[in-house]
């Protein structure tokens, strides 16, 4: 395995140190336990929006710490949920008296560690919002429920904006839940990521197959099918997402095409262009867009499509200023 890393066990820490140095005007990196906070403290009384999860999805979540978005992020080891003590320390550090809104991707590991962390921080006001936007997981009765994937970034953006404008904890939680309810995603892998600890691809695909409905931890997906080009893949992903959202003609959405880490930007725009045309044909207006590799799975080749149904408030929270390493306007 060749990666731009040194000892595998030091990878997360070394990367975090580099991240902190590159963005010292924006963030502070804490190493023991590991978490990242804003360089500038929150205004007293502001809700601290905190998120976290396994590493390997960069820029999520560390790259989203800053004005208008996260107050803190908690990176675990590669593809491994952070531990309760890390999360609790981040809560303590981030709280500015307005309480903490934790945005948690729905994975058993994340859920259990965040839940345990909340038990460790008795004095704090912590609310939690689960993101479970992945429509690849169908039958949530027989599973741990839908996973949280790229839609998480959108929920973090609107929650961060609501906190920044001074909403209280209940209101920030409410808007985050509404955003989480309005967002759906689905992804495809052309090649699985190579996880540093194993040095191997986390699943094997031939040169003619794609894996549809993958998560962001190198888990295999819903099914495997022959590769038939970008248009067919785009249609499969977009249809699953819009069907689940029951999108109707006349509605307005945010369209987010996300790269999984090793996908050239030029390909993401091909997918975006096709998805946009399909939505236009259905009378759906794409009012906001995001294209890039934001919620990645190490060096997985592939992409996901996320659609968020917009209303006026979500649109204006999306548009609100943000100043982080990965998103800025």
């Amino acid at each position: 395995m060749k990666k731009l890393l040194n000892a595998v066990d030091d990878a997360v820490r070394e990367s975090l140190v580099g991240f902190g140095a590159a963005h010292e005007e924006l963030v502070r990196v804490h190493l023991d336990p590991m978490y990242v906070t804003r360089a500038q403290p929150l205004l007293r009384g502001t809700v601290a929006v905190v998120s976290g999860g396994g590493s390997g999805h960069e820029p999520l979540h560390t790259g989203l710490v800053g004005e208008g978005m996260l107050a803190a992020a908690v990176p675990g080891e590669m593809f491994t949920s952070p531990t309760p003590d890390q999360i609790a320390a981040a809560y303590q550090a981030a709280d500015a008296g307005g309480g903490v809104l934790a945005i948690v991707k729905n994975y058993t590991g994340d859920v259990l560690n965040f839940e345990t962390a909340a038990e460790l921080t008795d004095g704090l006001d912590v609310e939690q919002v689960l993101v479970n936007d992945d429509v690849a997981v169908e039958d949530s009765l027989f599973t741990a429920g839908r996973r949280g994937v790229a839609g998480t970034l959108l929920v973090e953006k609107v929650a961060g904006a609501a906190a920044e404008r001074g909403d209280d904890l209940a209101a920030v939680a409410e808007v985050a839940r509404r955003a989480a309810g309005a967002v759906r995603s689905m992804g495809v892998a052309l090649r699985a990521p190579v996880v540093p600890h194993t040095g191997r691809a986390s699943f094997d695909l031939t040169d003619e197959e794609v894996e549809i409905g993958i998560g962001i931890h190198g888990e295999p997906g819903r099914h495997r099918e022959p590769f038939t080009g970008a248009d067919a893949i785009t249609a499969a992903l977009l249809d699953a997402v819009t069907d689940d959202l029951r999108l109707a003609s006349g509605e307005s959405v945010l369209l987010f095409v996300n790269g999984m880490g090793a996908t050239p930007l030029s390909e993401l725009y091909v997918v975006y262009g096709r998805a946009r045309t399909m939505l236009a044909e259905r009378g759906v207006q794409v009012a906001r867009s995001l294209v890039g590799s934001y919620v990645t799975s190490l060096d997985m080749q592939g992409a996901s499509i996320t659609v968020m149904r917009l209303d006026e408030e979500l649109t204006s929270l999306w548009d609100a200023p943000v100043h982080t390493a990965a998103l800025r306007w």
Partner: peptide, 15 residues
Amino acid sequence: LMSSVGGASGPLYGT
């Protein structure tokens, strides 16, 4: 275990 394992198994074995 709780502060070093992470993942699903960390809190489960920890508890």
